[in-house]
């Protein structure tokens, strides 16, 4: 929270909860008030990088990192020209290379790396592919079509559901009404006693309710689609799950063996038992508090003394 601050007036989000940062194409944030002051004439220079900016280029910062905002801006601009589709390429490889190039350009522009060269590259691309860019500008991408189709399907299915619900409600009401009438009719004309008739009807009612419940249960069987429209468990969909990696043999533990190229060093227990520790300085209280013990230093010294003593034999 404290990190959010205007670089010009130094107001922080903590001191002024209403603080709203804005960014322009250079990606440097400025608070709402400062924008009003600095850009009173409609245009001015960025207070951080001194780049000329227009006031109406400012918008509220959505992401914490202003660089992200800048990147989004640049991406939008770049994608306007780099609008080739997968169908425009002969192989997937070429398409991927093209995507990589686009990402590269966006990254370079965002981070001010070889800006001139990159802009030249963009211009060159625009010149080379003028007809394709214009052609693609109006065309829907494959993703657009898919999203549209999904939306339509979703709307249709929800309409259907509402319709069904309405019909069922109506039927239930009718049934209830009919039942009541039946009961009264029977009370009027039957020879059985009133108590018997009521008990019989209650039983019938119970059965009806049970049947309904069962139906409801059947209706609420697991959904076949996500809310995003992706079919569950259906084969042949365009969103195939990632293929499972080939079954690898289970992990086998192998103890770590370090070749110290020398005589074996005594273990930590041996350091104590053989009296190595008597010959080094004991750890001070402060050092012990930090988890340091004299045997650590001792072990290290001995290890480095023995490690490599065999170096140079048999050609290594």
């Amino acid at each position: 929270m404290d990190d959010i601050a205007c670089p010009r007036c130094k107001t922080t989000k903590f001191r002024n909860p209403a603080l709203k940062l804005m960014v322009n194409q250079c990606g440097h944030p400025l608070c709402e008030k400062c924008v009003e002051i600095v850009f009173i004439k409609g245009s001015g220079n960025c207070t951080t990088c001194n780049v000329l900016l227009r006031r109406n280029g400012f918008r509220f910062q959505v992401f914490d990192d202003p660089i992200v905002e800048k990147e989004l801006d640049i991406r939008k601009k770049v994608l306007k020209d780099f609008n080739a589709r997968e169908e425009d390429f002969a192989t997937l490889r070429e398409y991927n290379d093209y995507l990589e190039m686009v990402e590269d350009i966006v990254f370079k522009l965002t981070n001010n790396i070889e800006v001139d060269a990159t802009r030249r590259k963009i211009d060159q691309y625009k010149k080379d592919n003028k007809s394709m860019i214009n052609k693609n500008r109006g065309r829907q991408t494959k993703d657009d079509i898919l999203v549209e189709r999904l939306l339509e399907e979703e709307k249709m299915s929800s309409d259907l559901r509402v319709d069904q619900q309405k019909r069922e409600d109506l039927e239930r009401k009718k049934a209830l009404l009919k039942e009541k009438e039946d009961l009264i009719d029977e009370l009027m004309f039957s020879d059985l006693s009133a108590a018997q008739i009521v008990a019989l009807h209650d039983k019938q009612k119970q059965e009806l309710l049970e049947k309904e419940e069962q139906e409801a249960k059947e209706r609420s069987r697991p959904a076949t689609a996500f809310s995003t429209g992706i079919k569950l468990g259906s084969k042949g969909s365009e969103f195939l799950p990632v293929k499972k990696a080939a079954e690898a043999p289970p992990y086998e533990y192998k103890p770590l063996i370090i070749d110290i190229m020398g005589p074996p060093a005594p273990t930590v227990e041996e350091l104590e038992d053989f009296g190595y520790l008597n010959h080094i300085r004991g750890a001070e209280e402060q050092e012990k508090a930090g988890g340091f013990e004299s045997k650590i230093a001792c072990e290290r010294a001995i290890q480095s003394a023995l490690c490599g003593l065999y170096f140079g034999i048999d050609g290594n």
Binding site: F274, H279, A301, I302, Q303, S304, A305, L306, G308
Partner: peptide, 18 residues
């Protein structure tokens, strides 16, 4: 860079012990 100075300390400890 691994210097011989710590190794000297180790060898001296070893010498004093064994």
């Amino acid at each position: 860079v691994h210097n011989p100075y710590r190794a000297v300390e180790g060898l001296l400890i070893d010498t004093k012990t064994r």
